[in-house]
Computed example of a mutant assay.
Amino acid sequence: MNEIIFQVDEAPEGGYSARALGHAIFTEAETLEELRTMVRDAVRCHFDEGQGPKVIRLHYVRDEVLAA
């Protein structure tokens, strides 16, 4: 496996959540720096040694609402 992609969303209650696409991996954190650490840790825990991806891609999703 070369790459795993996480969708990163701002949590309604504050902080961030990240969910892997195609894998049952989910984590949350208060800051983006903490989220990066948590994602790396979650990936290491999910895959056997030597079986994990070489690259972790974070795809940030941000909604913005404008008044019409």
Score class of each variant (00 low, 15 high):
residue 34 E to Y: 09
residue 47 F to Y: 10
residue 42 A to R: 04
residue 12 P to F: 10
residue 57 R to V: 13
residue 67 A to V: 14
residue 37 T to D: 15
residue 49 E to C: 05
residue 60 Y to M: 03
residue 24 A to M: 15
residue 12 P to A: 11
residue 25 I to T: 13
residue 58 L to G: 02
residue 47 F to N: 04
residue 44 R to D: 14
residue 8 V to H: 03
residue 1 M to L: 09
residue 29 A to Q: 07
residue 17 S to Q: 07
residue 8 V to S: 00
residue 14 G to D: 09
residue 27 T to N: 06
residue 66 L to V: 12
residue 1 M to W: 12
residue 54 K to I: 09
residue 49 E to M: 06
residue 3 E to I: 09
residue 61 V to A: 10
residue 20 A to S: 03
residue 21 L to T: 15
residue 15 G to I: 02
residue 35 L to I: 04
residue 22 G to C: 09
residue 42 A to H: 04
residue 32 L to P: 01
residue 47 F to A: 01
residue 10 E to N: 13
residue 22 G to W: 14
residue 51 Q to E: 13
residue 1 M to V: 05
residue 39 V to I: 09
residue 25 I to C: 03
residue 65 V to A: 14
residue 4 I to G: 02
residue 36 R to V: 15
residue 21 L to E: 12
residue 33 E to L: 09
residue 40 R to H: 15
residue 40 R to M: 11
residue 37 T to L: 13
residue 56 I to L: 06
residue 7 Q to N: 15
residue 28 E to L: 01
residue 50 G to F: 05
residue 17 S to A: 10
residue 33 E to A: 10
residue 40 R to Q: 13
residue 6 F to K: 14
residue 47 F to R: 00
residue 10 E to M: 01
residue 23 H to Y: 15
residue 6 F to Q: 03
residue 20 A to G: 05
residue 39 V to R: 09
residue 5 I to H: 15
residue 9 D to A: 04
residue 43 V to D: 00
residue 13 E to M: 07
residue 23 H to R: 06
residue 51 Q to F: 13
residue 58 L to I: 01
residue 34 E to H: 05
residue 25 I to D: 00
residue 13 E to T: 14
residue 12 P to K: 13
residue 11 A to R: 02
residue 66 L to E: 05
residue 39 V to D: 00
residue 32 L to A: 02
residue 64 E to C: 04
residue 46 H to E: 06
residue 51 Q to K: 09
residue 66 L to G: 14
residue 14 G to W: 10
residue 51 Q to T: 10
residue 9 D to V: 11
residue 23 H to C: 01
residue 10 E to L: 03
residue 57 R to D: 11
residue 64 E to T: 12
residue 68 A to W: 04
residue 14 G to E: 08
residue 52 G to K: 03
residue 61 V to H: 12
residue 29 A to Y: 05
residue 63 D to F: 08
residue 29 A to E: 04
residue 24 A to Q: 15
residue 40 R to Y: 08
residue 33 E to R: 07
residue 18 A to G: 08
residue 20 A to V: 05
residue 2 N to S: 03
residue 20 A to I: 06
residue 19 R to Y: 11
residue 38 M to P: 08
residue 33 E to W: 08
residue 6 F to V: 01
residue 52 G to I: 04
residue 28 E to P: 10
residue 50 G to D: 06
residue 26 F to L: 07
residue 17 S to P: 02
residue 34 E to K: 05
residue 53 P to T: 08
residue 41 D to Y: 12
residue 61 V to C: 14
residue 64 E to D: 08
residue 66 L to H: 12
residue 57 R to F: 04
